[in-house]
Simulated scan of single mutants.
Amino acid sequence: MPDIFVNYRTGDEEGSAALIAHALSSRFGSERIFYAGKSIRPGQAFPQELLTAVRRSSVLLAVIGTRWAEATTRDGRRALDDPQDWVRREIQEALDTGAHVIPVLLRGVTRLDRATLPHELQVLADRQYRRFDHRNAESDLKRLGDDLADLVPRLAEADTAAGPAAEDRTPQHNGSVRMQVRDVRHRQQGGIGNLNGDLGTFVNESSGPLHTGSGNQHNGPTFTGDGMGVNYVAGDNSGGMRQQTDRVQPGKDDE
């Protein structure tokens, strides 16, 4: 069952409509996108296929190029003014069924004017639209896809472009403890601090050797002024660090 119906006019930059349909099919799955040039199989009755698909869709994308409003029928009338015009019929059907109807304006198309539309389609001018320009194809298609994922929960579930949410990432810790990954912001001016328990130890602005894990650490000798200091840390450093400085008395021959 399709969720998105791509409405377009033959002869009005239908290549752009095909590109939009292809990009959305890649992101959400081809079975969720109805594009007449691809979705209607040979031998099928296209009137019934079109009406069935648009009635079942949650969103209709009305792809509008520079010739969309001015295209004419074989007898010279404006196509939009013909009640049997398929572009018009599909949009009307979507409006009647309560689907989201989104105008997608192609390059060179200004915002729709109610005065230029048939009475049945004038509400189209009041709908929030999106733009598609080949020069910005990647960003325009991403934005359109994001909008559709927000509108239709089924599309969000099938969205291949959506990464896992941070709160759903649950890596294993020591083979048994599940730890939620979240942003940890810690600001400390100098010294050592703990970052939320299991996440480890924070060391900021250290100007000398520090011991934060298990094992022995021996720092020295360190000579300062007229004395000599030695730093020694044993074990897991659970009791902190103590520093002792012993003054060395000069020998009688020293100056």
Results as ranks from 00 to 15, higher is better:
132 F>K: 02
153 P>Y: 04
222 T>H: 06
193 G>T: 09
200 G>D: 02
182 R>T: 07
149 A>E: 11
195 L>R: 15
210 L>M: 03
216 N>C: 01
222 T>F: 06
191 G>M: 11
209 P>T: 01
150 D>I: 11
146 D>C: 01
157 E>D: 08
225 G>P: 03
221 P>F: 06
157 E>R: 09
197 G>R: 15
185 R>F: 02
233 V>L: 07
227 G>L: 08
126 D>V: 01
118 P>K: 09
135 R>C: 00
154 R>H: 08
120 E>S: 13
173 H>Y: 15
126 D>L: 04
197 G>I: 04
185 R>L: 08
142 K>F: 10
118 P>V: 07
152 V>P: 02
183 D>C: 01
136 N>I: 00
130 R>E: 13
189 Q>R: 12
156 A>S: 15
173 H>V: 07
121 L>A: 07
173 H>R: 07
116 T>D: 15
217 Q>C: 07
160 T>L: 05
153 P>I: 00
185 R>P: 00
146 D>M: 11
186 H>C: 12
123 V>L: 10
133 D>S: 02
177 V>S: 14
125 A>T: 09
226 D>F: 15
155 L>E: 07
193 G>F: 03
157 E>F: 14
179 M>Y: 01
190 G>Y: 13
228 M>S: 04
175 G>S: 10
231 N>G: 07
227 G>P: 00
206 S>P: 02
214 S>Y: 04
237 N>Q: 08
204 N>W: 05
155 L>V: 07
152 V>N: 10
198 D>T: 02
211 H>S: 12
214 S>H: 12
127 R>P: 00
118 P>T: 07
216 N>A: 15
133 D>T: 03
170 T>K: 14
195 L>C: 14
127 R>N: 04
188 Q>V: 12
118 P>H: 11
139 S>K: 11
182 R>E: 07
125 A>G: 08
144 L>R: 02
218 H>C: 01
239 G>P: 00
209 P>W: 05
156 A>E: 13
198 D>K: 00
128 Q>C: 00
141 L>M: 09
122 Q>F: 00
172 Q>S: 14
171 P>A: 06
192 I>N: 08
